[in-house]
Amino acid sequence: MVQQLVRLESNQEIAQGMFLMRFDSRRIATSAQPGQFLNIRATQRWSPLLLRRPFSISRVVGSSIELLYNIVGKGTKALSAQIPGEEIDVLGPLGIPFRYDGLFETAVLVAGGLGIAPFPFLTDFLEKKKATIITFVGSRSLFKIDMLHLRNVQYATDDGSNGFRGNVVESLAEYLQEHTLTAPKIFGCGPTKMLSSLSRLAQAKELSCELSLEGDMACGIGICQGCPVERSNGTKKYALVCTDGPTFDCREIKLPSP
């Protein structure tokens, strides 16, 4: 874990409302693993923002780190306003990575909207492992993400403008009915409701499934206790998204019903 100021190489909108930010950090690049995140603070002097914001590491290329984000509030808005050459304050890599080394042959990546964020990085590692990869991407309507490093993408859109009409978990359910996958493992990332229905599907079909969660957090390192998620069993009621996650086996945690 390092805390450092890094200079932005690029920071631009690559699809409607979706930004790709790139900066150089050899120290983070050499230690980061898929599923981990960075806790980031915009550094403009005039920024009234106090806390860092957590972002999945989207990809590591050489010593460059890439992050994908949407503008959802003041923090991401401030970040989107920073231009190449400016500095941001980065803490990380943080959290438990995806367990991509397990006994599986087919990796099923399931993303709801910006849930694609950690998957280009995971795809790199899965390719090294020579796993078969299928990527399910759901969105409200057509969104172009051809430039992202994803493999064998199956689209689902709420309005049917691209691929399957319906949500991404329905699209996966239909796919699983029609195809037999060899030793599959699901990796999910997206809104909590989507992850909740993905978790139900995986458990009903007895498929191994890991989820990457979001949490409102201040520190990102287990101190503030701000990001609890309910555990399914054990003596402790809550796990922390930042240090026990953000990746969890779907059987470990209890998400609110979809």
Partner: peptide
């Protein structure tokens, strides 16, 4: 155990 989420909200400054 502490309180259920949400536990943290950023407010002005």
């Amino acid at each position: 155990d502490g309180n259920p989420p949400r536990r943290i909200v950023e407010t002005p400054s």
